[in-house]
Design a protein around this nucleic acid. Sequence first.
DNA 1: CAGGATCCGGGTAGATACTG
DNA 2: CAGTATCTACCCGGATCCTG
Lengths: 121, 121
Amino acid sequence: MENNLEKYVDVANCPVRNVLDRFGDKWSTLVLLLLNEAPVMRFNQLHKAINGISQKMLAVTLKSLEGDGLITRKQYAEIPPRVEYKLSTRGASLLPHIENLVQWANANFDAIEESRKAYNK
Amino acid sequence: MENNLEKYVDVANCPVRNVLDRFGDKWSTLVLLLLNEAPVMRFNQLHKAINGISQKMLAVTLKSLEGDGLITRKQYAEIPPRVEYKLSTRGASLLPHIENLVQWANANFDAIEESRKAYNK
DNA sequence: CAGGATCCGGGTAGATACTG
DNA sequence: CAGTATCTACCCGGATCCTG
C-alpha cells in the first residue's frame, strides 16, 4: 500500500498534476467549454462571452491552451486583424471529461451548499 | 448562441465554478485520490504520503473537503489523539470522474510535453 | 482588432513556533 | 498526534496604457 501511493507523492514531477494544473486555473475550462459550443471564436468574442476576464488573462489562457495543443490559433492577414480559435482534436478529447465534471457539479451543487452551511454554523 | 453561452458568463455565481474551484486547488484531488486507495487515513499518514504539503495546507484542504461533504472526519477520544479521514459517499461519486481525468492526463502527457517544447521554441 | 508591456495590490502558500 | 497561530514573501490577477 505504501508503494501504491508513491506515484502521487512527488508532486513536482507528477504528470497528472502537470497536466491538470493547466485547466485547474481560473479560466481554461471556461474557454474550452465555450470553444466547444461554437466552431470557432475570435478574441473579442471570447472576451465578451466570459464576464470578468481581463484581456491579459484571456491572452495568457489562450497561449497556455495553444501551447498544450488543446486549441489552435488561426491568424488571417487582414486589416483589421482577425484571429480564430478553435478546439483541437486533443482538446476535443478532453472535453467529455470536463463535461462530466460539470454535470457532477450541477447535480451536487445544492447538497454541497447545504453541507457548507451546516459546517460553518 | 449568445444566449447559449450566458450560463458560463457569470463566473462569480456559477455553480460549476463554485464547486470545481474546490478541487481545482493544489492538493484536494491528491487527497481524494489517496483516500480512495485506503479505507481510512490519519493526518500524519496523509502528511507523509503527500510530498511537499505543509501541515497548514493539509489542514486547510481537509477542512474544505470535509465542509463540502466529500470526506468524513472521525475523531477518537484517546491519548494520543487519533483522527481518521475517509471518503464520503459524495466524495466517492466524484472520484470516477477525477480518475478519468487522471487517465486522460497520463495518456496525453507525452504529447502535451512535446507540444509545449515546440511551442516555446 | 488582437494583443504586448508595465505596474501594482491582495490573497495564498510556506515556514516556524506553539498547544491540547 | 493533530492540529492552530502568526508572520512573511511571492505570485497571480487586474487595471491601465500602448502598438502592429
